[in-house]
Nucleic acid binder design. Structure first.
Lengths: 336, 336
DNA sequence: CTGAAAGCGCTTACAG
DNA sequence: CTGAAAGCGCTTACAG
């Protein structure tokens, strides 16, 4: 395999010059560049990335870490979509992608440590935001370039992140349900330790407050593991909810199925509104009213922010909201 | 940041010895190992991966390349699941994962070239198998370690691959439908240039032949882009099919929805059988009869084969089938 | 505009 | 069991 020295010899220049041609250094003459490039082509020369990175002290790699289980276990399209978005900017900016492989939280933390200490990546994208996250804290403590997809619960001002405006999003959803006449709305699913859930609860409450309504605490059901039980409990309440807000289309379908078993019809008896706009949601019966959150864009921007941070470690932290869109279909009806 | 030299000094040994301790070399005394390890801990020393790889001429990285669009556009759980499987063995064997980021086929090919020529990865996992694939051909020509998830159309004997037994799988499905009385079965969806589709067509035909039936060519509909049109055409046939075999649950739902619009009921008028066992398929109406193909296992084994190939480049090529399981639910009925 | 030299931080025959 | 030395294949001040 040809090295930079072979190219240098064949082109009658020094290795330094070849190196500069590779980097398209402006102070090399066009003539030299042309000659060297020709030789590189002839010899099918590709620079050795490891050597280049070692000398240049960078990696041109972005680490992507997904929270333990969270993303993958959930068979929703979040993961592939966000990766597509990240890939798009990574590719455009000539970065590679390195995925965390750990299964347990501990393994992932060790891996992240190794990624930064062993100089495997130039920066890291955290695909989640949650409370008391040792990985988040580690990255902060090390002052290592990273960005989070989601809104970190702490140190927001000093960290780069990208998210939907989940407060506003939930408020809009609840506004919509209230406009349909619903006043007893349950919020089912979603780990309350995740920022995303908390923000949505907040938006929920803002809408209620705005309309002079009071939230019944029994309507908050954030235990994802026992959907069926949760629904039973909810439906046995004196003031049983007439609408349900849930955070993912897949969960919405699970809920609808359980409801049907209880002979409760959607949307006639209970309205369901969701978030994520799964590709299937248009094909389902009833077609789901849900929110498009533009996951691709989330990933795209996250990588964008990270690359900027890597290039300029001292710049001010960036945050932004990616737009969302309520998609009204058939799973919500007027309260009768 | 501490280097191997700092550790060596602090431990009163040579850098070579530190290096050997890191590699847990057997010929280093336990006493020395202990001392060096202690120092490493004290100094929070992590070996620089780039340097190590440059010197050792390996990368401890596995490249994962997904066919252009194929995996991601399709919002099915294949991608996250197969990555989970790959991650599991990669993590166990201390390999990292590097994802291809290209969008177009050309970009992906360039990226793969760069991965191998620039020594970014020790081996590559191809997440698809198809005809005339320049990436496959390149990897073969370079004699670079790689494994394919799927059955390559050519050079099977010399290449490592892992797949379901798609011929047998399809045969079983058609046997099942025939046992229910169906004799006019359509096969909808799936690019015929992909090995997976071709194998399933073969299984389809084997079942027909076995039962002394003849396949009507009009029943093969492999144009994925216009499902609705395809169904219309199919349903206007004189011998309109009484059952439809499709290759993915998501497509099955699309089909069911279109059928309902035509006032054709599933499974009463037409039976639907599918493949992939999506997490949702149990919640759908009608609950889908489909095949569990164990995607995690596919990824796990693929990485396993690849690591073995990397460690032993001259060993005989390995292939294996991952088991599949027909899951009978409610979308198929006896022909009436 | 180009080159010689030092260096990036490791590994690994070779020698003892 | 351990060390000195060469080398992995680049980059980048420094000098001219």
């Amino acid at each position: 395999m040809a090295t930079i020295i072979d190219v240098a010899k064949a082109a009658n220049v020094s290795p330094s010059t070849v190196s500069r041609v590779i980097a398209d250094h402006p102070r090399i003459s066009l003539k030299t560049k042309r000659k060297v490039r020709e030789v590189m082509k002839d010899l099918a020369y590709y620079p050795n990335i490891q050597a280049r990175n070692l000398a240049a002290k960078k990696t041109m790699m972005l680490g992507v870490v997904m929270g333990h289980s969270a993303m993958l276990a959930f068979q929703n399209p979040f993961f592939p979509e966000v990766i597509r978005g990240i890939s798009a900017t990574a590719h455009a900016r000539k970065y590679g992608l390195s995925l965390s492989t750990g299964g347990t939280e501990r393994e992932i933390l060790d891996e992240v440590r190794a990624m930064v200490q062993s100089k495997k990546v130039d920066g890291i994208i955290l695909l989640y935001a949650k409370d008391q996250d040792p990985i988040f804290e580690y990255l902060r403590a090390e002052n290592f370039p990273f960005v989070v997809v989601g809104t970190p619960p702490e140190h927001r001002l000093e960290t780069d992140y990208i998210d939907n405006n989940n407060v506003a999003l939930a408020e809009e959803l609840v506004d919509y349900l209230i406009a349909l006449g619903h006043e007893d709305i349950a919020f089912v699913g979603g780990d309350i330790h995740y920022g995303v859930t908390r923000d949505r609860v907040k938006g929920f409450e803002q809408s209620y407050a705005k309309h002079g309504l009071e939230v019944d605490a029994a309507y908050y059901q954030h235990n994802t593991d026992h959907v069926e039980e949760t629904l039973l409990k909810l439906m046995q309440l004196k003031n049983r909810p007439t609408a349900i807000l849930t955070q993912d289309d897949l969960m919405a379908y699970e809920i609808i199925t359980h409801l049907e078993r209880l002979a409760i019809r959607v949307p006639d008896d209970v309205s369901i509104i969701s978030i994520n706009n799964h590709a299937l949601s248009n094909y389902m019966r009833p077609a789901l009213t849900t929110v498009e959150i533009h996951i691709f864009e989330l990933g795209y921007k996250a990588a964008e922010f990270l690359c900027q941070r890597i290039e300029n470690p001292t710049k001010k932290a960036q945050h932004a909201f990616v737009e969302t869109k309520l998609i009204v279909r058939e799973s919500c009806a007027k309260r009768c």
